[in-house]
Structures are given as C-alpha cells and as structure tokens.
C-alpha cells in the first residue's frame, strides 16, 4: 500500500491549520490524524472539504476511555473524511469530557452527518450542536442510557413488551 501520500499531505494540513490553537497533526500508519479542540471542528472540516478536497464524510464515531487515562477527558470523537479525486483520507479527533460532551454538528457541510451523529449521540451521549434531529436511530424511544459507554452493562436489557405470564425471564449475568 502506497503511503507516500501521508507524508505529502501532513505538512500541508499543518500549514493550513496552523492558525487554530491546540491543533496537532500526526502521521499514523494509515492516514494523517488531526487533533484539535472541539470548538474548531466545524471550521477545520470546512477547510478540509473546500481546500483539500475531502468531500465525503465517511464516518463519525466516538471512543469511551473511562478508567484508562485519568486526567484526560473521557471521550474521543472521531471523524473520518475521504477525498474522491485523490485516494486520500484524514482522521479528525477531539476529546470531550463527561460533564460537557458537546461538539459542533457537521450537518451543514455533509448530508451523511445526520444519521451518523444520531447514532453517536444515542450510543455515547455526545451532543452535536446544530443537529436539530437527534432522535434515537438504532435504539428506541424510551431507552435510557448510552449503551456503548463502558459503564453500561452489556446485559442490561430494557424490554418494551412485557414477558408472557408463567415464562421465566432469561437468566442474566448482569443486573436486570
């Protein structure tokens, strides 16, 4: 796999985003990674889309670092962008803490952000400011909690339909 493009792209990204405080551009093995404060994500994404040709938002997701890195904010929010003209990719990352897990929404820039931000919100509780529709998409109305957080027990079910009379509920390894 040709990775020379990462070495060519990373300095250009550094130059373009130098004015944004707190930005760090790293060269991972698979693509350049841009880490920056949450408040600047929207402008950085717009720069990447308009000036660097990263026209497609491929993925929005988050990582919960509960218990792993004390002192650092709890969540990583990760965006993957892709350029269609050149076979290039870039990863945008920011860290938000549990008390204020809010990042800007990229819905005004990319239509694909709508569904992906809904999923990230319901799974982690990350709020996307500017996305008016954060209804549950994979989960259902009335589901309490954010299942992909590390403190959500995998076996904690929230049934919508009451079980039949005389039927024993499934044995559970966690709390019901």
């Amino acid at each position: 796999m040709d990775t020379g493009w990462i070495d060519r792209l990373a300095p250009r990204l550094e130059a373009a985003l130098a004015a944004v405080p707190g930005t760090a551009v790293q060269r991972a093995a698979d693509m350049p990674v841009v880490e920056l404060p949450a408040a600047h994500i929207f402008d950085a994404a717009r720069t990447l889309r308009d000036d660097f040709g990263f026209v497609m938002l491929v993925d929005v997701t988050a990582v919960d670092w509960l218990g792993r890195e004390p002192g650092r904010p709890r969540f990583d929010v990760v965006w993957h962008l892709r350029s269609l003209d050149a076979a290039e990719r870039v990863r945008l990352k920011t860290r938000v803490d549990e008390a204020a897990p809010e990042v800007p929404s990229l819905v005004p820039l990319f239509g694909s952000a709508a569904f992906m931000e809904r999923e990230c919100h319901e799974m982690f509780g990350i709020r996307f400011a500017g996305n008016a529709d954060l209804r549950p998409i994979l989960l259902y109305e009335g589901f309490a909690g954010h299942p992909l957080r590390k403190d959500y027990d995998i076996h904690h079910e929230q049934p919508l339909v009451p079980y039949r009379d005389g039927v024993a509920p499934p044995r559970s390894r966690g709390t019901p």
Binding site: R135, Y140, E141, V161
Partner: peptide
C-alpha cells in the same frame, strides 16, 4: 399497551 418504538419526524 404496546409502545411505539419510534417517533415520526
């Protein structure tokens, strides 16, 4: 008594 799992837009 069956709940609706979604809310329409």
């Amino acid at each position: 008594r069956l709940p609706n799992p979604v809310r329409a837009a």
